[in-house]
Design a binder for these strands. Structure first.
Lengths: 191, 191
DNA sequence: TGCCAAGTGGAGGAATCCTCCATATTTTAA
DNA sequence: TTAAAATATGGAGGATTCCTCCACTTGGCA
């Protein structure tokens, strides 16, 4: 790990993936506070190896759910092709909230991912997410269905926060309603 | 602690208050993960006493910030007397978000407080908060500035979530914007 | 093939958790 | 007022978890 840009050695990459895979199971089963040697054990890896790849619990949790971001963002084009921007944003945000809220540790992971100063590993996911929301918002602005000046980060923060706070109580109805409020709150105000 | 309804013995009440006072300082200084014996030490109390009064960390943290809820809710009448319901709700929500977001562990405490199945100690604060928001929402509904059927719990969840996710980054501007979106999202839709 | 940078495992000291129970204090009632 | 009963206390200590350190192993390159 001298040069952060150098690709991992083949065995190291394999172990890293094993850790992520194991952590996915163990986090789902035990929650975010699971002892990290459970993860190491299940991955068939020494505890030091786990710590080398993921120096903090936060980075491990973020690492586990990183791969869930892209598929979510991939739906963007289809949505925009199929419906007007306001409905597209609503639909996308509802999917986001449902999906993020559906796994016990995922809101925590997404919190790291959207944080402006999160760990370096989450950077690509951070950018992807922000780009996606920004695109939806700007498209709606240009179409006149949203007022100008809405800050995409605000939406990400509000959605992620909702998932953090609700801990899967009442979902998905409550999530749907909150998303609706946020999106309706972006429409132009008839003065 | 046999009968939960029986009032505490005088010395026990004094120690409980000392614990809350100490925890307030220590949590602010060290964050939510502070070792609990630091709290006990600062309160001049044995660790067992702390555990007897607050069996879980969650209950301790909630207990510390319980007393901040009432003052916030006390402003309700003045607000409603001074301005229309939509502005009153906006103002109140902004105060809430600013205040809850201003202390490192308070969002966590409020998460317990608003949870539908939180610990028993938080019940009065829970009810007070819900009553306050409900009153603001219903007043606006009757005045026709909000559409019907807005669920007050949704607002509490969204505000608390925002505080949890944002960790005091960007506050207070971002908080103000998110509150505005939520409140505007409650207005009647001109179809 | 042999070298070395990169990667590994797990022992073990330090920190923290949380229960248990002998002791101390308050309250009650006679 | 006093003594018994009810309540509350402190901190020792076993169990758990954290996380670093370093002697050893392995993959990649010349």
């Amino acid at each position: 790990m001298a040069d952060p840009a150098r690709p991992l050695r083949a065995d190291a990459r394999r172990k890293r993936e094993a850790i992520v895979e194991a952590a996915k199971d163990v986090l789902a089963e035990w929650g975010a506070d699971v002892p990290l040697d459970h993860v190491a054990k299940r991955a068939g890896v020494g505890i030091a190896t786990l710590y080398r790849h993921f120096p903090t619990r936060e980075e491990l949790i973020a690492g586990v759910y990183l791969s869930e971001i892209d598929p979510l963002c991939d739906t963007l084009d289809d949505l925009l092709a199929a419906m007007p921007a306001d409905r597209a944003l609503t639909t996308w945000m509802r999917r986001f909230v449902r999906h993020v809220g559906s796994k016990p540790c995922m809101p925590l992971a997404v919190k790291s991912i959207i944080a402006p100063d999160g760990p370096a590993v989450v950077r690509p996911a951070h950018d992807r997410l922000l780009t996606t929301v920004t695109h939806l918002v700007r498209t709606g602005e240009r179409a006149g269905v949203f007022r100008e000046g809405v800050v995409p980060e605000d939406l990400l923060m509000a959605m992620t926060g909702f998932c953090l706070a609700s801990d899967r109580t009442d979902l998905p109805d409550q999530g749907d309603r909150v998303v609706l409020m946020l999106v309706d709150g972006m429409r132009p105000r008839e003065v």
